[in-house]
Design a protein around this nucleic acid. Structure first.
Lengths: 218, 218
DNA sequence: TAGATTGTTAATCGATTAACAATC
DNA sequence: TAGATTGTTAATCGATTAACAATC
């Protein structure tokens, strides 16, 4: 067994956390691994194995106290603190992400967007300013930014990521391009948005009548 | 070896496809598995193994013809056809997705958004109309919609997905909630957007000075 | 031909699942 | 106590990597 758990485990812990957070408050105080895992479509032993990486959070014969487990997962996922973040690239995707306010609830506070396009600089999205890329380094270090979401075209990604890292950013939420190069102490989390949609299309039944039009006919 | 390749393989095929699509046209005609995989940060044997699920696309001693491989991946991923799709739930996330025009290039054409909020119905996002949820079934079957992106609150997800499936939709791009129940011939592709961000935060170094503020202090 | 690189099998590695003793 | 359910080990399963014969 390696020292560090895999990203797969962390992602499931995040799924457990979200599930527990969304339970109606009038529900019971405790749940068994069998009950939780059934709701999430996984195996109970996997849930217990995942938690086992970080300690013991349940009681034999009883299950898991919901509030306690939620608090522990919150700690494990570092959601008990503010994460100021910025978005680099204020095109469609960057603006879309800025408008998706959901993250604020969990302490991810958007401080600024950055772009090189003079037509965008100065505009406000979701009440956050789009700033000139030239200001990236000074802004990031002054405001102790920990995370940058990368929403530039893929051929710019490595360049802006290097700049962000030099300005002290330790977490890259990367929507732009796979396989960027960063120092060992910087974490890159890739989001494969179009690839996810491609995968869905690929898995659709070939006989599916709704997708028979040739692209050329468009 | 199972009959069907895993979703992990399909996702990597999508990554290869995007990589090849983005190559400048003045680059060479052929690439070896070693060259491609180095750019993408994977092992060459994995690239060859992934392709091996679907056939033989290279030539010994020569490598892969870029245009040919791109075309074959396009077929495998079903990107050689139009996929009309809708977005269910026109809140922040649904609107954000509608504004993210990138998919159109690959044949994913947004035909409508749906919501129950009377204030949203009739508005146009990215020049596509937000329609009343009551029209979902008739619109979806009349327009041969194959894919629905689910952007409702998670407690509505199962309900709208059941309705979408009854209207003939075969692919669910699910941003709302894990573990929804669908018939065997319907494909669900989950996108874990907040979970991805949680995972990034969890992996950030504990000593990271940029994230030391208590959430309570906010 | 000699060098390069594939297709493909076999070996390794890691993740998931099953099982059950411990114990509430 | 008896029943329930955890924590944890061991077994299984699947995915990744290495190796190399085939061959361009």
């Amino acid at each position: 067994m390696p020292k560090k758990c895999s990203c797969l485990v962390l992602r499931r812990l995040a799924i457990y956390y979200r599930y527990l957070s969304q339970l109606p408050s009038e529900s019971s105080h405790a749940l068994s691994s069998a009950e939780i895992s059934k709701q999430l479509g996984i195996k109970a032993s996997q849930l217990r194995q995942d938690l086992h990486w970080f300690g013991e959070f349940g009681h034999q014969g009883y299950g898991y106290d919901i509030e306690y487990l939620k608090g522990q997962l919150c700690n494990i996922l570092h959601l008990n603190m503010i994460h100021p973040f910025i978005i680099i690239g204020a095109g469609n995707l960057g603006q879309a992400l800025a408008n998706y306010a959901e993250f604020e609830r969990d302490g991810f506070i958007l401080k600024a967007l950055f772009d090189i396009n003079p037509k965008l600089i100065g505009l406000r999205i979701h009440n956050v300013e789009i700033m000139d890329m030239d200001c990236l380094e000074s802004f990031a270090s002054k405001n102790q930014i920990s995370i940058a979401a990368i929403c530039t075209p893929s051929n710019n990604a490595q360049n802006v990521i290097t700049r962000a890292v030099n300005a002290g950013i330790k977490g890259i939420w990367n929507f732009a391009s796979p396989n960027v190069i960063v120092p060992d102490d910087v974490i890159v989390e890739n989001v494969y948005l179009s690839e996810s949609l491609y995968t869905l299309a690929a898995r659709l039944d070939e006989g599916n009548k709704s997708a028979f039009n040739e692209l050329n006919a468009h």
